[in-house]
Design a protein around this nucleic acid. Sequence first.
DNA 1: CAGGAATATTCTCTAAATGGTATATTTAGT
DNA 2: ACTAAATATACCATTTAGAGAATATTCCTG
Lengths: 106, 106
Amino acid sequence: MDMTTFSALAEPNRLRIVELLLDGPMSVGEIAEQLQIRQPQASKHLRTLLDAGLVEVEAVANRRNYKLRLEPFQQLDAWLNTYRGVWNEQLDKLESYLNKLKHKSN
Amino acid sequence: MDMTTFSALAEPNRLRIVELLLDGPMSVGEIAEQLQIRQPQASKHLRTLLDAGLVEVEAVANRRNYKLRLEPFQQLDAWLNTYRGVWNEQLDKLESYLNKLKHKSN
DNA sequence: CAGGAATATTCTCTAAATGGTATATTTAGT
DNA sequence: ACTAAATATACCATTTAGAGAATATTCCTG
C-alpha cells in the first residue's frame, strides 16, 4: 500500500477537500471558500493532494478545476481486502462457536 | 471518517507494524526485531497505534502482546463505500457510452 | 528480596509540516 | 498594452513528529 495516500489524508483540511470533491470538480477559490481557509493554503493542500495522486487538475481559462482520481481509493480498497480476510475469519469462528453452543444446549 | 487512523498509518514503521500484526499478535520485542528498529521506537509507535485505536494490548507477564483491532479498518471500509459509489457511476457511464458506440457502428 | 528481562517514558535534538503574508504568473476583458 | 481576477510559489516563523540515549517501571526467577 502506498503510504503517501495516508499522509495526504492525514491532514484535516485535505480530508475535507477530498470529501468536497465527491460532489464533483471544484475550483481553488470555491474550495477555499467552503473550507474557510485562505487561497494559498488551499493551493498548497491541493498541491500535496496532486503529488499524492489523489486529485487531478483541468485548467479552464483562469480557473483550475480539481477533481478526484479514483485509482488511489481503489488501491486502498484492494489493500483493505487483506483485513477483510481477517475479520471474516473472526466472524467464522464466532459462528461456529455459536453453533457448538446451540448443539450442546439442545 | 476519523482522521487519526490516517495519521497513524502515515508513518512507514507503523504501517509495517500493522501489516505484521495481520499474522497474529506479537510482542514489542518481536516487532522491534522484525522491523529492525530499537525497542523504544517500537514502544512509541505502538503507543501511537494504541491511541489511534488500531491495536490493543494484552499483558502476559513481562510481555505485552499487541494485536489488531478491526473496527477502524471496518470504518475505513465503510468510508470507502462512498467512493465506490462514485467509481461505479463512472463505470456505468463508460458502459453506456460503449453501448451507444456499438449501436451506432452496427 | 536481589537481579535481570521486557517494556514504557522522558529528554534532547533535528527535520518536516503548516499557516501567514507577500509576490509572481497566467488569462480575460477593455 | 493595462488592469483585474484566479492561482501558484517563495519566504519566514511556529509547531509537531520522529530518532537516539538514558532512565523508570513492572514482573519473573532464583
